[in-house]
Design a protein around this nucleic acid. Structure first.
Lengths: 257, 257
DNA sequence: CGGTTTTATTGATTTAGCTCAAGGCTTCTG
DNA sequence: CAGAAGCCTTGAGCTAAATCAATAAAACCG
């Protein structure tokens, strides 16, 4: 146990620094926490060995014990339908919290698999609850984060229900771009860590359609794609494509009502 | 003010009874609240004059002050896109809480409009927060409810991304049926309070498609539809239709991967 | 209660995106 | 580095659902 403790100490030291540059700021930054509180929050966070590509953070059916904040890398979450089909429910990039949907059922409802080498912070939920009782704003902040997730899911539903293949892919690329730029990475140039198949699955399209769209976006001068590497050449054009503004779009309007 | 107080007293008396038979049980039942706590929860709940068909409970852009529990009737929530198109994000039946997605932004992100005469309980959010600090389980329960909403939204996304028109409508009817039976109404026979247009909008389909599907379901002996009145004749058949099990379905498989 | 508006149904045609098919390019493995 | 396996792309139909169009049935209203 003492070896363990020594490890812990060194871990915690690096931890604090890590946390500040990591996604947990979502939880702690808006709270005006005292130094003591931050330290306490730090203390309950477990660092884990980074996940290798293909490894699972948790699997559907696992008992829910913790929520996770992605520090680096990326993962996909997916459910498996009765008939064994995989349905991708989301791609998660640094600064996101995953596992929140398991609070209701005490069981994870989806599997989270690393798309590349990925490191996360683990926040044991019971400890977080205890801490929430002591730090007034913490639980409130958690509610905010969940509310935000509901809101985002609703927006997602809208474009799944209404948008064309073209709009869906354009939206996805723009969302990723935004997320990267929010995290101080390039908004124009990034790597897709997921396969075309995953993208298609997520967007509710066939792989072939996604592939064709990438080609078309490229030949339209919107993007420059090489395998997983994407450079956005015409951000405004992509935005127009995503919004599908009926005033500018004179070609056939779809069932938007 | 004294007239107001007298009104309040009589309101609160009826309130308690109302609350127990109403949707707020989601919030209080699982908490093993003491009688005092229930009373305190009761006290913060405001009863409002029932909404008439077409009236709005809140509108997108309104400042967020309260969440609402539907006692009777139904409402739809929808957002209006930049170009003025309406997008229905949900239908809400008795026992549901609405307004949770506004917690993040302090502003309502959608409009909630009554589909018929509808009564709701209003729960001022600041009061609920104060109470949450006093009653340990309350905030936790709120987290659970929100987690559940995230989960449901994700499931919804799956069928929007993947399912055929047929499956979408079948699923919607089954979900409504379940919700009615959970609330001790008939699972087989109910009224659709929303228009075909709203259903189509919600499901991401054209009105004509929805109309045709109703006709087909009827001629297939799954349903008996007369205007807004629906009788489910073959629950199993409808279930099969909704799931679209590829093993039983020998006709063309879709892009389910 | 007759006229107007809204809402729903049904048919005919078009089209976005799926399926099927085949070939090229990576990555992995022995 | 050769062969296999997997991923990605492109082409050629095909099909589910959209659009367009017309009618019918309610609901609304003066």
């Amino acid at each position: 146990m003492s070896t363990n403790d020594i490890n812990k100490v060194s871990q915690l030291t690096s931890m604090r620094v890590a946390c500040e540059s990591c996604s947990l700021h979502q939880l702690c930054l808006p709270l005006e926490l005292s130094a003591d509180d931050v330290e306490e929050l730090d203390r309950i966070i477990k660092r884990r060995r980074p996940l290798q590509r293909g490894e699972c953070l948790f699997q559907a059916g696992d008992v829910f014990t913790a929520i996770y904040a992605i520090r680096s890398g990326s993962l996909k979450t997916f459910t498996t339908t009765d008939d064994g089909q995989e349905q991708v429910t989301g791609f998660h990039l640094p600064s996101e919290l995953v596992g929140l949907d398991a609070i209701t059922t005490d069981t994870h409802n989806c599997t989270a698999r690393a798309l590349e080498t990925t490191s996360v912070c683990e926040i044991p939920y019971t400890r977080l609850q205890e801490l929430g009782a002591k730090i007034p704003g913490l639980q409130r902040q958690l509610l905010r984060i969940m509310s935000k997730e509901i809101l985002e899911d609703q927006n997602l539903m809208i474009w799944l229900a209404k948008k064309t293949a073209e709009e869906r892919l354009a939206s996805l690329l723009l969302r990723m771009s935004k997320q990267f730029s929010d995290r101080h990475f390039s908004a124009r140039e990034f790597n897709l860590s997921m396969s075309r198949t995953d993208i298609a699955n997520y967007l509710g399209l066939a792989v072939e359609t996604v592939s064709r769209l990438f080609s078309r976006f490229q030949s339209d001068g919107l993007l420059c794609v090489d395998r997983k590497h994407v450079v956005i050449e015409d951000m405004d054009g992509l935005q127009r494509m995503a919004h599908h503004d009926p005033h500018t779009d004179l070609g056939g309007s779809r069932a938007h009502n």
